[in-house]
């Protein structure tokens, strides 16, 4: 009998695994087990919570960003105006940008979703909020009246000048033809530092607004927010997906998701996200279908860890 390898088949047939057990039984009180489990887990939960608490790093606001890193804020605002920021060129679902989005072969799923959450970075992040002020800057009408090409040349000249300025400091920028751009960005900086910009952008969604898409995208276009995340090991190339701030355990169950981003062939690909999501969906399906996959389902027989699980049973055969 022992010569025949044990079956790892999922099928229900006339064997011991498929029949109701008619052999020896032992007392096993499920409700008692549940009660003991609830008590033990309760002690653990209360103990861990009391000893280790939980992380809560305060949110970044446009105000805190503008205060802590004004140069970065101004550079980002310029990019939002000029349409050169990450969000401005993101494409679907925020705006129409030709030839962006990750492709799976010929299919661009991102573009297929269409513009569902329209965001015009110049208007939504800069000129719109500025126009809400009691005394909107004069520069606003200059900007509004200017042609698209003119706007682009102003913002691009100012972006270059900011890069060359000492510490990228907007107050130390060389003289140049930047049109209304410095006035607009410095007004926006002042507005943000006063704390008025957070409400202005969030208010674009109406009185009740639980959608933080605009505010978060604006934050993410700058270097400050990303720098904070980078400093706390939270970015994608640092296995950040599974990390939590401080030493708190995070979503360690995302280790495999995170892992693929570290594999150069996958993580470095132009369509890395789509590849990783695809691989993970496939692997999850495969995990569910392990009982049907020859080889994968046979490993437990080849590496007989089950002899430890059932050591009592095998001892008393």
């Amino acid at each position: 009998m022992s010569k025949i390898p044990a079956s790892v088949s999922w099928r229900s047939k006339d064997d011991i695994a498929s029949r109701a057990w008619t052999g020896k039984k032992r007392e096993y009180d499920l409700f008692k087990e549940l009660t003991v489990g609830v008590i033990v887990v309760g002690v653990l939960v209360v103990g861990l919570s009391a000893v280790f608490s939980s992380p809560d790093e305060p949110s970044v606001t446009l105000k805190s960003w503008a205060t802590a890193a004004p140069a970065d804020f101004v550079a980002t605002a310029t990019a939002e105006l000029g349409g050169t920021s990450g969000t401005a060129g993101y494409g679907a679902p925020y705006n129409n940008t030709p030839d962006v989005g990750q492709k799976l072969g010929p299919i661009n799923l991102q573009s297929l979703s269409g513009v569902q959450i329209p965001i015009d970075t110049a208007v939504d992040f800069v000129t719109g909020p500025l126009s809400l002020q009691a005394n909107p800057p004069q520069a606003l009408s200059t900007w509004t009246a200017a042609a698209t090409d003119q706007r682009a040349s102003w913002t691009s000249a100012y972006t270059d000048a900011l890069t060359k300025a000492p510490n990228n400091d907007p107050t130390q920028v060389a003289v140049g033809d930047y049109g209304p751009v410095p006035a607009l960005t410095s007004s926006l900086l002042a507005m943000a530092q006063q704390g008025a910009l957070d409400g202005a952008i969030q208010g674009e969604g109406g009185f009740f607004n639980l959608d933080y898409t605009r505010s978060i995208l604006f934050l993410g276009d700058g270097a400050y927010f990303v720098g904070l995340a980078d400093g706390a090991h939270l970015t994608g190339d640092q296995w950040g997906m599974m990390n939590e701030t401080g030493n708190y355990p995070g979503q360690s169950w995302l280790w495999l998701f995170s892992f693929w981003y570290q594999v150069p062939v996958v993580g470095g690909a132009a369509n890395a996200d789509i590849l990783v999501v695809g691989i993970m969906l496939l692997l999850t399906v495969l995990l569910g279908l392990v009982p049907f996959i020859p080889g994968l389902r046979t490993i437990p027989r080849w590496i007989p860890i089950h002899r430890l699980v059932w050591k009592d049973y095998y001892k008393r055969r």
Partner: peptide, 16 residues
């Protein structure tokens, strides 16, 4: 966990 209440997070606590 020291959680200083600041409007400006000067830095986010990084772990080991």
């Amino acid at each position: 966990m020291v959680n200083t209440i600041l409007s400006i997070p000067s830095d986010i606590t990084g772990g080991t």
